[in-house]
């Protein structure tokens, strides 16, 4: 048996998860929620994580009913993400690894999402759509790398949604994307927005500028409701994502799609992706908010795969990095 503990804190969620041979033993998490109209800044987010990380770690151990001696490896997010929160989490991971005399392992956050998705859904070789507040990528596995077939050329899709929520002062509790999704269900009118697919890549910053500029004018004139805007924005952004995912599938001859990342728990995105999959005779795999949204278990799971195939990170090499591309990691645990 191999038990791995994973520490995640690259954005506004802090989580510690424990995985034993494909079984999630515990996965507690806290979210730093900012007031409506405000985003989360690195230093404040780091302060939030610092205040709760030791409590979350104790919860993870208690819930899993294991002692530090039972753990085989301590995994943590090396990057990508916000610098200050990453450092906070890495400091605790390094310290407990040494206190407990266990090997340390730096994990790529994006790989964490992919491996967690594969574990939960049992998708064998899917085309992966990774959509969150910081990342938007279409990924497929080939020759020991998760290769990026398409990605955003500016901001992430979740960042576009988050910043749109700030314009309308939509609550960030539990997350801006969740509240947009609920409001979008009441939208009745589709407002045409720019559509920006560029080959295999997508662009969201122009769409955001457009709605930021137009939103208040349209709302004030009574031409549409906030719900209509939420609906129209979701339809536009998700259509773009489905389009590039379908193109990647056609290229790879893939019959499976796996959606991971925080935006991946949006049911409208899953519904649109499923419609495309059905037309192609393909199968959609997705997870719910427990595993889609950043969590400790995903780092533990990727760490488990890496550790079992012989990876460890020496203490002097355990620096965090804000930029860390998915295709930088050699995938030694898959054929």
């Amino acid at each position: 048996m191999t038990v791995v503990i994973g520490f995640e804190g690259s954005a506004n969620k802090i989580g510690v998860g424990i995985v034993r041979d494909g079984e999630v033993l515990s996965n507690p998490r806290r979210t730093y929620v900012t007031p409506p109209g405000q985003g989360f800044l690195p230093s404040e987010t780091a302060r939030h994580h610092r205040a709760v990380i030791l409590t979350v770690l104790q919860e993870a151990l208690d819930e899993a009913a294991i002692t530090p001696a039972d753990i085989d490896c301590v995994a943590y997010t090396k990057g990508p993400g916000m610098g200050a929160p990453l450092v906070t989490v890495a400091l605790v991971a390094r310290t407990v690894a040494q206190l407990w005399g266990k090997p340390l392992l730096g994990v790529n956050h994006c790989i964490g999402h992919i491996e967690m998705g594969r574990l939960i859904t049992h998708a064998s070789d899917p085309t992966v759509l990774y959509v969150s507040g910081g990342n938007t990528q279409v990924i497929a596995y080939s020759e020991r790398r998760y290769r990026i077939f398409g990605e955003t050329i500016d901001i992430a899709v979740g960042n576009c949604l988050d910043r749109f929520a700030r314009v309308l002062k939509i609550s960030n509790d539990p997350s801006p994307g969740y509240n947009i999704e609920q409001m979008a269900k009441k939208g009745t009118q589709y407002i045409e927005l720019p559509y920006a697919v560029k080959g295999m890549d997508v662009s969201f910053s122009g769409i955001l500028s457009y709605v930021e500029e137009a939103a208040h004018k349209m709302l004030d004139s009574g031409n549409c409701t906030a719900e209509d805007l939420c609906f129209s924005l979701q339809e536009t952004l998700f259509s773009m994502l489905v389009e590039i995912t379908e193109r990647a599938m056609a290229h790879c001859g893939s019959q499976e799609v796996l959606i991971v990342g925080g935006v991946g728990c949006n049911l409208r995105l899953q519904e649109m992706m499923d419609a495309m999959c059905k037309e192609r005779g393909a199968k959609l795999f997705a997870t719910d908010e427990r595993f889609c949204i950043d969590n400790g278990a995903m780092i533990a799971q990727a760490g488990w795969e890496m550790f079992r195939s012989g990876h460890v990170t020496k203490m002097p090499d355990s620096w965090i990095t804000q930029r860390y591309r998915t295709d930088e990691v050699e995938v030694t645990w898959r054929d």
Binding site: I53, L54, L57, L91, V92, T95, L99, G101
Partner: peptide
């Protein structure tokens, strides 16, 4: 100093070091 105090707190909460 912030980082140091977090490391010290972690040592207090999850130490002492295990026998190697």
């Amino acid at each position: 100093l912030d980082h140091l105090s977090l490391v010290l707190e972690t040592m207090e909460a999850f130490g002492p070091p295990a026998e190697q």
